[in-house]
Design a protein around this nucleic acid. Structure first.
Lengths: 226, 226
DNA sequence: TATTCTATCTATAAACT
DNA sequence: TAGTTTATAGATAGAAT
Protein backbone atom coordinates (compact mmCIF):
# COMPACT_ATOMS: atom_id res chain seq x y z
CA UNK A 1 0.00 0.00 0.00
CA UNK A 2 3.01 2.27 0.11
CA UNK A 3 3.50 4.63 -2.78
CA UNK A 4 6.59 3.89 -4.83
CA UNK A 5 9.51 6.28 -5.06
CA UNK A 6 8.95 7.20 -8.74
CA UNK A 7 11.66 5.74 -10.87
CA UNK A 8 12.91 8.43 -13.20
CA UNK A 9 12.26 6.78 -16.56
CA UNK A 10 9.73 7.15 -19.36
CA UNK A 11 6.27 6.01 -18.29
CA UNK A 12 5.23 3.42 -20.87
CA UNK A 13 1.62 3.05 -19.76
CA UNK A 14 -0.26 5.56 -21.90
CA UNK A 15 -3.01 6.62 -19.55
CA UNK A 16 -0.68 6.85 -16.59
CA UNK A 17 1.76 8.94 -18.55
CA UNK A 18 -1.00 11.25 -19.68
CA UNK A 19 -2.30 11.64 -16.14
CA UNK A 20 1.19 12.29 -14.82
CA UNK A 21 1.78 14.83 -17.57
CA UNK A 22 -1.31 16.81 -16.74
CA UNK A 23 -0.63 16.87 -13.03
CA UNK A 24 3.02 17.71 -13.39
CA UNK A 25 2.45 20.37 -16.03
CA UNK A 26 -0.05 22.08 -13.73
CA UNK A 27 2.35 21.81 -10.81
CA UNK A 28 5.19 23.21 -12.88
CA UNK A 29 3.15 26.20 -14.04
CA UNK A 30 2.14 26.89 -10.48
CA UNK A 31 5.77 26.77 -9.37
CA UNK A 32 6.97 29.12 -12.12
CA UNK A 33 4.23 31.52 -11.24
CA UNK A 34 5.27 31.37 -7.59
CA UNK A 35 9.00 31.87 -8.05
CA UNK A 36 8.31 34.74 -10.42
CA UNK A 37 6.01 36.45 -7.94
CA UNK A 38 7.92 35.70 -4.76
CA UNK A 39 11.35 36.59 -6.08
CA UNK A 40 10.36 39.23 -8.62
CA UNK A 41 12.24 37.67 -11.49
CA UNK A 42 11.71 37.15 -15.21
CA UNK A 43 11.12 33.58 -16.22
CA UNK A 44 9.30 31.55 -18.80
CA UNK A 45 8.50 27.98 -19.66
CA UNK A 46 7.44 26.25 -22.86
CA UNK A 47 6.04 22.74 -22.78
CA UNK A 48 5.05 20.63 -25.79
CA UNK A 49 2.44 17.94 -25.54
CA UNK A 50 3.26 15.49 -28.36
CA UNK A 51 -0.48 15.08 -29.03
CA UNK A 52 -0.92 18.80 -29.51
CA UNK A 53 1.08 21.04 -31.85
CA UNK A 54 0.35 24.05 -29.65
CA UNK A 55 2.63 24.34 -26.67
CA UNK A 56 1.63 25.48 -23.23
CA UNK A 57 3.58 28.51 -22.22
CA UNK A 58 4.05 30.71 -19.20
CA UNK A 59 3.60 33.55 -18.45
CA UNK A 60 2.08 34.43 -21.87
CA UNK A 61 3.12 34.30 -25.50
CA UNK A 62 4.30 37.91 -25.27
CA UNK A 63 6.14 37.30 -22.01
CA UNK A 64 7.88 34.33 -23.57
CA UNK A 65 8.84 36.38 -26.62
CA UNK A 66 10.33 39.00 -24.33
CA UNK A 67 12.38 36.57 -22.28
CA UNK A 68 13.43 34.61 -25.34
CA UNK A 69 14.61 37.62 -27.29
CA UNK A 70 16.59 38.79 -24.29
CA UNK A 71 18.12 35.35 -24.21
CA UNK A 72 18.94 35.47 -27.93
CA UNK A 73 20.50 38.92 -27.76
CA UNK A 74 23.30 37.47 -25.70
CA UNK A 75 26.36 36.20 -27.66
CA UNK A 76 26.62 32.41 -27.84
CA UNK A 77 29.83 32.39 -25.82
CA UNK A 78 28.22 34.19 -22.92
CA UNK A 79 25.22 31.88 -23.14
CA UNK A 80 27.21 28.80 -22.36
CA UNK A 81 29.42 30.42 -19.75
CA UNK A 82 27.92 30.24 -16.30
CA UNK A 83 24.60 28.83 -17.44
CA UNK A 84 23.01 25.79 -15.97
CA UNK A 85 22.51 23.56 -18.95
CA UNK A 86 21.42 19.96 -19.04
CA UNK A 87 24.95 18.66 -18.61
CA UNK A 88 25.98 20.82 -15.67
CA UNK A 89 22.59 20.12 -14.16
CA UNK A 90 23.36 16.42 -14.19
CA UNK A 91 26.84 17.06 -12.81
CA UNK A 92 25.32 18.96 -9.93
CA UNK A 93 22.95 16.13 -9.15
CA UNK A 94 25.69 13.54 -9.32
CA UNK A 95 27.86 15.57 -6.99
CA UNK A 96 25.01 15.89 -4.52
CA UNK A 97 24.40 12.15 -4.66
CA UNK A 98 28.10 11.52 -4.06
CA UNK A 99 28.09 13.73 -1.01
CA UNK A 100 25.05 11.97 0.36
CA UNK A 101 26.66 8.60 -0.25
CA UNK A 102 29.83 9.73 1.50
CA UNK A 103 27.81 10.83 4.50
CA UNK A 104 25.91 7.56 4.57
CA UNK A 105 29.07 5.47 4.42
CA UNK A 106 30.45 7.55 7.24
CA UNK A 107 27.32 7.05 9.31
CA UNK A 108 27.43 3.32 8.71
CA UNK A 109 31.06 3.09 9.70
CA UNK A 110 30.33 5.08 12.85
CA UNK A 111 27.57 2.71 13.87
CA UNK A 112 29.66 -0.31 13.04
CA UNK A 113 32.52 0.91 15.21
CA UNK A 114 30.21 1.85 18.05
CA UNK A 115 28.82 -1.65 17.94
CA UNK A 116 32.26 -3.23 17.83
CA UNK A 117 33.50 -1.01 20.65
CA UNK A 118 30.74 -2.12 22.98
CA UNK A 119 31.14 -5.72 22.02
CA UNK A 120 34.67 -5.52 23.34
CA UNK A 121 33.72 -3.48 26.38
CA UNK A 122 30.76 -5.70 27.20
CA UNK A 123 32.85 -8.84 27.00
CA UNK A 124 35.52 -7.23 29.20
CA UNK A 125 38.13 -8.16 26.61
CA UNK A 126 41.18 -6.27 25.48
CA UNK A 127 41.34 -4.94 21.91
CA UNK A 128 43.88 -7.49 20.76
CA UNK A 129 42.36 -9.23 17.80
CA UNK A 130 40.95 -6.13 16.14
CA UNK A 131 42.68 -4.83 13.04
CA UNK A 132 44.62 -1.60 12.98
CA UNK A 133 42.03 0.42 11.08
CA UNK A 134 39.24 -0.59 13.40
CA UNK A 135 41.35 0.25 16.41
CA UNK A 136 42.14 3.69 15.05
CA UNK A 137 38.49 4.37 14.33
CA UNK A 138 37.35 3.13 17.70
CA UNK A 139 39.95 5.26 19.36
CA UNK A 140 38.78 8.29 17.44
CA UNK A 141 35.18 7.47 18.31
CA UNK A 142 35.96 7.27 22.01
CA UNK A 143 37.78 10.58 21.87
CA UNK A 144 34.80 12.19 20.21
CA UNK A 145 32.45 10.78 22.80
CA UNK A 146 34.61 12.05 25.62
CA UNK A 147 34.81 15.51 24.14
CA UNK A 148 31.08 15.46 23.75
CA UNK A 149 30.52 14.55 27.37
CA UNK A 150 32.94 17.23 28.52
CA UNK A 151 31.09 19.80 26.48
CA UNK A 152 27.78 18.80 28.03
CA UNK A 153 29.16 18.81 31.55
CA UNK A 154 30.64 22.25 31.02
CA UNK A 155 27.30 23.46 29.78
CA UNK A 156 25.36 22.17 32.73
CA UNK A 157 28.01 23.47 35.13
CA UNK A 158 27.71 26.89 33.55
CA UNK A 159 23.99 26.72 34.21
CA UNK A 160 24.30 25.45 37.79
CA UNK A 161 27.41 27.50 38.57
CA UNK A 162 25.77 29.59 41.29
CA UNK A 163 24.32 26.56 42.98
CA UNK A 164 27.67 24.78 43.18
CA UNK A 165 29.41 27.89 44.56
CA UNK A 166 26.84 28.16 47.34
CA UNK A 167 27.73 24.67 48.52
CA UNK A 168 31.26 25.97 49.19
CA UNK A 169 32.96 23.25 47.13
CA UNK A 170 35.35 23.75 44.22
CA UNK A 171 34.05 22.93 40.75
CA UNK A 172 35.45 19.57 39.65
CA UNK A 173 37.31 19.43 36.35
CA UNK A 174 34.95 18.22 33.66
CA UNK A 175 37.62 16.16 31.99
CA UNK A 176 38.70 14.24 35.10
CA UNK A 177 35.11 13.51 35.98
CA UNK A 178 34.51 12.16 32.53
CA UNK A 179 37.45 9.83 32.51
CA UNK A 180 36.36 8.36 35.78
CA UNK A 181 32.90 7.69 34.45
CA UNK A 182 34.33 6.08 31.40
CA UNK A 183 36.67 3.83 33.37
CA UNK A 184 33.92 2.71 35.66
CA UNK A 185 31.89 1.89 32.60
CA UNK A 186 34.60 -0.51 31.51
CA UNK A 187 34.26 -2.56 34.67
CA UNK A 188 30.49 -2.97 34.80
CA UNK A 189 28.76 -5.87 33.10
CA UNK A 190 25.97 -3.97 31.40
CA UNK A 191 24.46 -5.53 28.32
CA UNK A 192 26.39 -4.46 25.26
CA UNK A 193 23.35 -3.57 23.24
CA UNK A 194 22.00 -1.35 25.95
CA UNK A 195 25.26 0.48 26.02
CA UNK A 196 25.18 0.86 22.32
CA UNK A 197 21.77 2.43 22.50
CA UNK A 198 22.98 4.81 25.11
CA UNK A 199 25.99 5.55 23.00
CA UNK A 200 23.95 6.16 19.88
CA UNK A 201 21.77 8.51 21.82
CA UNK A 202 24.49 10.80 22.93
CA UNK A 203 26.31 10.57 19.65
CA UNK A 204 23.23 11.66 17.78
CA UNK A 205 22.32 14.20 20.40
CA UNK A 206 25.74 15.79 20.51
CA UNK A 207 27.79 17.36 17.79
CA UNK A 208 28.02 15.21 14.68
CA UNK A 209 31.52 15.90 13.49
CA UNK A 210 32.73 14.07 10.42
CA UNK A 211 34.60 10.90 11.17
CA UNK A 212 38.09 10.72 9.71
CA UNK A 213 37.51 7.45 7.93
CA UNK A 214 35.73 6.28 4.83
CA UNK A 215 35.87 9.72 3.28
CA UNK A 216 37.32 8.76 -0.08
CA UNK A 217 35.56 5.52 -0.83
CA UNK A 218 33.21 7.05 -3.36
CA UNK A 219 36.06 8.44 -5.42
CA UNK A 220 37.12 4.99 -6.50
CA UNK A 221 35.35 4.66 -9.81
CA UNK A 222 31.72 4.03 -8.93
CA UNK A 223 30.81 7.46 -10.24
CA UNK A 224 32.11 9.41 -13.22
CA UNK A 225 34.55 12.14 -12.27
CA UNK A 226 33.06 15.64 -12.41
CA UNK B 1 6.34 27.10 15.72
CA UNK B 2 4.16 26.24 12.78
CA UNK B 3 5.47 27.16 9.38
CA UNK B 4 3.39 29.78 7.61
CA UNK B 5 1.48 29.04 4.43
CA UNK B 6 3.64 31.27 2.18
CA UNK B 7 1.75 34.35 1.16
CA UNK B 8 2.15 34.75 -2.57
CA UNK B 9 3.74 38.20 -2.71
CA UNK B 10 7.19 39.59 -3.40
CA UNK B 11 9.61 38.74 -0.59
CA UNK B 12 11.03 42.08 0.51
CA UNK B 13 13.73 40.72 2.83
CA UNK B 14 16.78 40.44 0.60
CA UNK B 15 18.50 37.42 2.08
CA UNK B 16 15.25 35.51 2.44
CA UNK B 17 14.33 36.24 -1.14
CA UNK B 18 17.73 35.12 -2.35
CA UNK B 19 17.52 31.89 -0.35
CA UNK B 20 14.02 31.20 -1.61
CA UNK B 21 15.14 31.90 -5.17
CA UNK B 22 17.97 29.40 -5.00
CA UNK B 23 15.87 26.65 -3.49
CA UNK B 24 12.95 27.19 -5.80
CA UNK B 25 15.07 27.49 -8.92
CA UNK B 26 16.71 24.17 -8.10
CA UNK B 27 13.33 22.61 -7.43
CA UNK B 28 11.95 23.93 -10.68
CA UNK B 29 14.85 22.61 -12.73
CA UNK B 30 14.45 19.23 -11.11
CA UNK B 31 10.75 19.22 -11.95
CA UNK B 32 11.28 20.16 -15.58
CA UNK B 33 13.87 17.46 -15.89
CA UNK B 34 11.44 14.96 -14.39
CA UNK B 35 8.41 15.79 -16.51
CA UNK B 36 10.57 15.73 -19.60
CA UNK B 37 11.97 12.30 -18.76
CA UNK B 38 8.82 10.71 -17.37
CA UNK B 39 6.48 11.90 -20.10
CA UNK B 40 8.95 12.05 -22.98
CA UNK B 41 8.10 15.58 -23.98
CA UNK B 42 9.97 18.65 -25.19
CA UNK B 43 10.15 21.47 -22.72
CA UNK B 44 12.37 24.31 -21.71
CA UNK B 45 12.68 26.97 -19.07
CA UNK B 46 14.57 30.25 -18.88
CA UNK B 47 15.05 32.01 -15.56
CA UNK B 48 16.73 35.38 -15.03
CA UNK B 49 18.41 36.25 -11.77
CA UNK B 50 18.32 40.06 -11.61
CA UNK B 51 21.83 40.05 -10.11
CA UNK B 52 23.19 38.09 -13.04
CA UNK B 53 22.80 38.97 -16.72
CA UNK B 54 23.17 35.32 -17.67
CA UNK B 55 19.98 33.33 -17.36
CA UNK B 56 19.73 29.80 -16.11
CA UNK B 57 18.21 27.59 -18.73
CA UNK B 58 17.05 24.06 -19.13
CA UNK B 59 17.76 21.64 -20.76
CA UNK B 60 20.67 23.45 -22.51
CA UNK B 61 21.15 26.56 -24.63
CA UNK B 62 20.78 24.48 -27.79
CA UNK B 63 17.72 22.70 -26.45
CA UNK B 64 16.15 26.02 -25.63
CA UNK B 65 16.94 27.35 -29.08
CA UNK B 66 15.26 24.33 -30.59
CA UNK B 67 12.09 24.61 -28.55
CA UNK B 68 11.97 28.36 -28.97
CA UNK B 69 12.32 28.30 -32.73
CA UNK B 70 9.60 25.68 -32.92
CA UNK B 71 7.48 28.03 -30.88
CA UNK B 72 8.29 31.00 -33.10
CA UNK B 73 7.55 29.12 -36.30
CA UNK B 74 3.92 29.01 -35.30
CA UNK B 75 1.77 31.94 -36.49
CA UNK B 76 0.83 34.43 -33.75
CA UNK B 77 -2.86 33.60 -34.05
CA UNK B 78 -2.24 29.93 -33.40
CA UNK B 79 0.02 30.82 -30.49
CA UNK B 80 -2.70 32.53 -28.53
CA UNK B 81 -5.41 30.01 -29.40
CA UNK B 82 -5.47 27.14 -26.97
CA UNK B 83 -2.36 28.16 -25.08
CA UNK B 84 -2.16 28.53 -21.36
CA UNK B 85 -0.98 32.06 -20.85
CA UNK B 86 -0.69 34.02 -17.65
CA UNK B 87 -4.26 35.26 -17.80
CA UNK B 88 -5.94 31.93 -18.49
CA UNK B 89 -3.68 30.42 -15.87
CA UNK B 90 -5.08 32.81 -13.29
CA UNK B 91 -8.63 32.17 -14.50
CA UNK B 92 -8.08 28.46 -14.02
CA UNK B 93 -6.87 28.95 -10.47
CA UNK B 94 -9.74 31.26 -9.62
CA UNK B 95 -12.25 28.80 -10.99
CA UNK B 96 -10.72 25.99 -8.96
CA UNK B 97 -10.83 28.13 -5.83
CA UNK B 98 -14.47 28.93 -6.51
CA UNK B 99 -15.37 25.29 -6.85
CA UNK B 100 -13.60 24.44 -3.63
CA UNK B 101 -15.37 27.27 -1.84
CA UNK B 102 -18.72 26.09 -3.17
CA UNK B 103 -18.04 22.60 -1.89
CA UNK B 104 -16.97 23.89 1.48
CA UNK B 105 -20.06 26.02 1.88
CA UNK B 106 -22.15 23.01 0.98
CA UNK B 107 -20.38 20.84 3.52
CA UNK B 108 -20.86 23.45 6.20
CA UNK B 109 -24.54 23.79 5.46
CA UNK B 110 -24.94 20.02 5.57
CA UNK B 111 -23.34 19.80 8.98
CA UNK B 112 -25.34 22.73 10.25
CA UNK B 113 -28.60 21.13 9.16
CA UNK B 114 -27.67 17.76 10.59
CA UNK B 115 -26.98 19.43 13.89
CA UNK B 116 -30.23 21.36 13.80
CA UNK B 117 -32.18 18.26 12.84
CA UNK B 118 -30.97 16.31 15.83
CA UNK B 119 -31.49 19.23 18.16
CA UNK B 120 -35.14 19.06 17.28
CA UNK B 121 -35.32 15.27 17.36
CA UNK B 122 -33.41 15.09 20.62
CA UNK B 123 -35.70 17.61 22.33
CA UNK B 124 -38.73 15.76 21.01
CA UNK B 125 -40.05 19.02 19.58
CA UNK B 126 -41.89 19.65 16.39
CA UNK B 127 -40.28 21.71 13.63
CA UNK B 128 -42.45 24.74 14.19
CA UNK B 129 -40.12 27.62 14.83
CA UNK B 130 -37.60 26.75 12.11
CA UNK B 131 -37.57 28.91 9.02
CA UNK B 132 -38.69 27.69 5.65
CA UNK B 133 -35.25 27.28 4.14
CA UNK B 134 -33.99 25.24 7.07
CA UNK B 135 -37.06 23.05 6.95
CA UNK B 136 -36.56 22.39 3.26
CA UNK B 137 -32.94 21.53 3.76
CA UNK B 138 -33.60 19.29 6.73
CA UNK B 139 -36.29 17.55 4.78
CA UNK B 140 -33.92 16.98 1.90
CA UNK B 141 -31.29 15.73 4.31
CA UNK B 142 -33.66 13.22 5.86
CA UNK B 143 -34.68 12.00 2.43
CA UNK B 144 -31.06 11.49 1.50
CA UNK B 145 -30.41 9.61 4.70
CA UNK B 146 -33.39 7.37 4.12
CA UNK B 147 -32.35 6.60 0.56
CA UNK B 148 -28.90 5.84 1.85
CA UNK B 149 -30.22 3.40 4.42
CA UNK B 150 -32.47 1.71 1.85
CA UNK B 151 -29.53 1.29 -0.45
CA UNK B 152 -27.48 -0.30 2.29
CA UNK B 153 -30.30 -2.63 3.34
CA UNK B 154 -30.82 -3.70 -0.24
CA UNK B 155 -27.14 -4.42 -0.54
CA UNK B 156 -27.00 -6.56 2.57
CA UNK B 157 -30.21 -8.34 1.58
CA UNK B 158 -28.74 -9.12 -1.81
CA UNK B 159 -25.80 -10.68 0.00
CA UNK B 160 -27.93 -12.64 2.49
CA UNK B 161 -30.71 -13.41 0.01
CA UNK B 162 -30.21 -17.18 0.11
CA UNK B 163 -30.20 -17.23 3.87
CA UNK B 164 -33.50 -15.36 4.16
CA UNK B 165 -35.18 -17.61 1.58
CA UNK B 166 -34.13 -20.68 3.53
CA UNK B 167 -35.97 -19.39 6.57
CA UNK B 168 -39.19 -19.54 4.55
CA UNK B 169 -40.17 -15.93 5.23
CA UNK B 170 -40.84 -13.24 2.64
CA UNK B 171 -38.25 -10.53 2.22
CA UNK B 172 -39.46 -7.41 3.95
CA UNK B 173 -39.58 -4.23 1.88
CA UNK B 174 -36.47 -2.17 2.52
CA UNK B 175 -38.38 1.09 2.46
CA UNK B 176 -41.00 0.06 5.04
CA UNK B 177 -38.33 -1.24 7.34
CA UNK B 178 -36.47 2.00 7.10
CA UNK B 179 -39.40 4.19 7.95
CA UNK B 180 -40.10 2.18 11.04
CA UNK B 181 -36.53 2.54 12.22
CA UNK B 182 -36.70 6.23 11.65
CA UNK B 183 -39.96 6.65 13.56
CA UNK B 184 -38.70 4.69 16.49
CA UNK B 185 -35.66 6.92 16.53
CA UNK B 186 -37.96 9.90 17.08
CA UNK B 187 -39.30 8.48 20.29
CA UNK B 188 -36.06 7.56 22.02
CA UNK B 189 -34.22 10.01 24.25
CA UNK B 190 -30.71 9.46 22.93
CA UNK B 191 -28.27 12.30 23.35
CA UNK B 192 -28.46 14.62 20.39
CA UNK B 193 -24.75 14.83 19.80
CA UNK B 194 -24.38 11.07 19.77
CA UNK B 195 -27.04 10.93 17.13
CA UNK B 196 -25.27 13.54 15.13
CA UNK B 197 -22.09 11.56 15.20
CA UNK B 198 -23.96 8.52 14.03
CA UNK B 199 -25.56 10.60 11.34
CA UNK B 200 -22.29 12.08 10.16
CA UNK B 201 -20.85 8.62 9.99
CA UNK B 202 -23.37 7.23 7.62
CA UNK B 203 -23.57 10.40 5.62
CA UNK B 204 -19.88 10.36 4.99
CA UNK B 205 -19.80 6.63 4.50
CA UNK B 206 -22.62 6.61 1.99
CA UNK B 207 -22.92 8.43 -1.31
CA UNK B 208 -22.08 12.10 -1.02
CA UNK B 209 -24.54 13.67 -3.40
CA UNK B 210 -24.52 17.42 -3.71
CA UNK B 211 -27.01 19.16 -1.48
CA UNK B 212 -29.47 21.35 -3.35
CA UNK B 213 -28.70 24.43 -1.32
CA UNK B 214 -25.90 26.97 -1.09
CA UNK B 215 -24.77 26.23 -4.61
CA UNK B 216 -24.85 29.75 -5.98
CA UNK B 217 -23.53 31.77 -3.09
CA UNK B 218 -20.08 32.23 -4.59
CA UNK B 219 -21.53 33.74 -7.75
CA UNK B 220 -22.73 36.82 -5.93
CA UNK B 221 -19.85 39.20 -6.54
CA UNK B 222 -17.09 37.97 -4.23
CA UNK B 223 -15.10 36.72 -7.20
CA UNK B 224 -14.61 38.22 -10.67
CA UNK B 225 -16.64 36.49 -13.33
CA UNK B 226 -14.60 34.13 -15.53
C1' DT C 1 26.64 34.73 3.79
C1' DA C 2 26.08 30.06 2.57
C1' DT C 3 24.95 25.41 3.94
C1' DT C 4 22.58 22.03 6.56
C1' DC C 5 18.73 20.36 9.24
C1' DT C 6 14.09 19.56 10.35
C1' DA C 7 9.31 20.39 10.92
C1' DT C 8 5.80 21.38 8.01
C1' DC C 9 3.57 22.23 3.77
C1' DT C 10 2.77 20.80 -1.05
C1' DA C 11 2.76 17.67 -5.07
C1' DT C 12 1.26 13.72 -6.74
C1' DA C 13 0.92 8.17 -7.39
C1' DA C 14 -2.42 5.05 -6.73
C1' DA C 15 -7.02 3.85 -5.78
C1' DC C 16 -11.56 4.82 -6.50
C1' DT C 17 -15.77 6.99 -8.81
C1' DT D 1 -11.37 8.96 -19.79
C1' DA D 2 -11.43 12.38 -16.57
C1' DG D 3 -12.23 13.98 -11.85
C1' DT D 4 -11.85 13.06 -6.69
C1' DT D 5 -9.75 11.27 -2.63
C1' DT D 6 -6.12 9.68 0.25
C1' DA D 7 -1.76 8.60 1.88
C1' DT D 8 3.14 9.10 0.96
C1' DA D 9 7.07 11.18 -1.39
C1' DG D 10 9.10 15.48 -2.15
C1' DA D 11 9.76 20.64 -1.64
C1' DT D 12 10.97 24.17 1.27
C1' DA D 13 10.53 28.05 5.26
C1' DG D 14 12.74 28.98 9.16
C1' DA D 15 16.26 27.87 12.45
C1' DA D 16 20.73 26.45 13.47
C1' DT D 17 25.48 26.15 12.16
Amino acid sequence: MTRKKVELTYITNDSKRKAAFKKRKDGLMKKINEISTLCGIEACAIIYDPNDPKPEVWPSPCGVQSVVSRFRRMPEVEQSKKMLNHESFLRQRIQKAQEQLKKQINENRKKEMTHLMFQYLGAGKIFDNANMTDLNDISWLIDQNLKDIERKINQSQAQEGTLVAENGSETVSGEKQVHMDHDQGLETNMDAMQKQNWSMNFINGGGDEMLPFGADIVQSGLWPNP
